[in-house]
């Protein structure tokens, strides 16, 4: 099978050469702008919410991200989020809005199989890796810092 491996490698290189490339600068600029604007929207919401008496900046940050999540889910429902994301690329899926879009689009997609067996089962089919890795790695981080604190003698 060695000659096949060589043939495949040669074909792979040729395919790489002939396949059109994504327009690098164009897509980078779009990702930059989409991501930047999403963050600015979050910042505006955070600063406005922070003006409410009794709301700390940290609370305002939480409420701002909740607002972004709800807005993104609503846009997904209306069918406009994916149209924006086709241009935004990473600028649309890296912010928390992309997380919300992935979750709600899966929920909508599998609604046809029922609320229990479709929506509820498949809601995490795209964002599952984020939640699972987040829980596992943050737990590891917590344990690690606990051990460090023990050794350091701060607790």
């Amino acid at each position: 099978m060695t000659d096949n491996a060589e043939r495949n490698a040669r074909y792979g290189k040729y395919v790489e050469w002939i396949s059109p490339k994504t327009d690098y600068t164009h897509s980078l600029v779009k990702a930059f702008v989409a991501g930047g604007l999403t963050c600015v929207t979050g910042e505006i919401a955070r600063n406005l919410l922070g003006m409410i008496p009794g709301v700390t900046d940290e609370q305002a940050a939480v409420f701002a991200s909740v607002l972004l999540v709800v807005a993104a889910i609503f846009m997904t429902g209306l069918g406009v989020y994916d149209a924006i994301a086709r241009h935004g690329g990473a600028g649309s899926f890296l912010p928390i809005t992309g997380f919300a879009n992935a979750m709600s689009s899966a929920a909508m997609e599998f609604r046809a199989e029922g609320l229990i067996t479709g929506t509820a089962v498949k809601m995490f089919s795209v964002v599952g890796p984020v939640v699972v890795n987040g829980v596992v790695w943050s737990a590891a981080a917590g344990v690690l810092r606990y051990i460090v604190a023990l050794i350091w003698g701060t607790i």
Binding site: A34, G36, V40, P95
Partner: peptide, 8 residues
């Protein structure tokens, strides 16, 4: 924010 997304 833009730079992070461009990196991705």
């Amino acid at each position: 924010g833009g730079l992070l997304c461009a990196l991705a």
